[in-house]
Amino acid sequence: MSYALEINSLKKTYDNGFEALKGIDLTVEKGDFFALLGPNGAGKSTTIGILCSLVNKSSGSVKVMGYDIDHDFGMAKRHLGVVPQEFNFNQFEKTQNILINTAGYHGIPRAEATPRIEHYLKRLGLWDKRDNPSRALSGGMKRRLLIARALVHQPDLLILDEPTAGVDIELRRGMWDFLTEINNQGTTIILTTHYLEEAEALCRNVSIINHGEIIANSSTRDLLASLHTVTFVCDLAAPIDSVPVIEGYECALPDAMTLEVEVDKGQSLNEVFAALSAHQVSVTSMRTKTNRLEELFVSMTSGDSK
C-alpha cells in the first residue's frame, strides 16, 4: 500500500549531542486526518523539520506520497504543504505577492497561480487584505495566510504545526471547518496541536511521541477505548451535604452543587444514575472532567499509566 507519509527508522541527533528522534517508524494513510501529539521537546517539530528539509536527518528514510525525500526531492516537495508554527513570511511583502512567490517557487506561473490565489484568499477571508503588507495583518489573519500559502500548490499532504495556537475560539472553529472540507476533498492532513480537544474532534488516527519515540499509534477511537478511567462531573439540581455512597464507584464533592464520579472501563453510567436517584440526588447536566484524549496523553507522557 502506498502511504501519504512513510517514515522508517528516522533518527536525529543534533550537534550538541541531543538525540531528538531515536529511530521512529510512522505511516499515515492517504486521505487520513492524523494527529501527531507530544509534549514540548518530544520530537514533533524535528520530525516536521525533516519532512520539509529544514532539519537534516541523521539516518532513516522518509517518503511523501511514495516519493523519497532524498532521491525524489522535487516530487516529494511538490506533494507537500507545510503550515509552520511561526510566521515565516516576508513581513514587508504584500499578502498576495507572498502567495504568488510561493507558487513561483513551486514552478507555477503567475497566470496559473492568480485564480488559485484568489480562491484561497477569498475562502480564508483575506481577499480584502490582498494588497496590504503582511505585517499589517492581525494574528489570526497571518495564521490563515500561512494556510493559504501552504495550499497554493495544491499539495496532497498538508502538515499543520499547531495551526490554531493563539487563535480565538470562533476562528479556530472556522479553521476546523476549512480543514475538514479540504480533507473531505482528498487532502491528507497531519496536525500537531496542544489542544487535544482539537485532535479528538478532527483526527481519525493519532500518534503520540515522547522523548523521541512513538509511544502510541492507533485510531483515535481505539486509543480512547484504552482509557481505563473517566471522571464525570455532574451538576446537581440541589445542594447536598455529604458524598452519596455508590458501591463500586469513587465519588467526590468539590462543592455542594457538584459531584465527581470516577467510572472505570466496563462500568455503566446507568448504575450511577440509578444509585443517585435512590439517594434523591438530581443531576441537571454532566461532562467529562478533562478532555479524554488529554487525560490519556498526560498519563502516557508522564509515565503514569492508569
Partner: peptide, 17 residues
C-alpha cells in the same frame, strides 16, 4: 534578511534546486 525573517524557508520547503 531572508534567513533572519525565516522566509528563506519558503524556498527550502519548495522543490527548487
Amino acid at each position: 534578511g531572508a534567513k533572519f525573517g525565516k522566509f528563506i524557508e519558503e524556498m527550502l520547503v519548495s522543490p527548487i534546486s
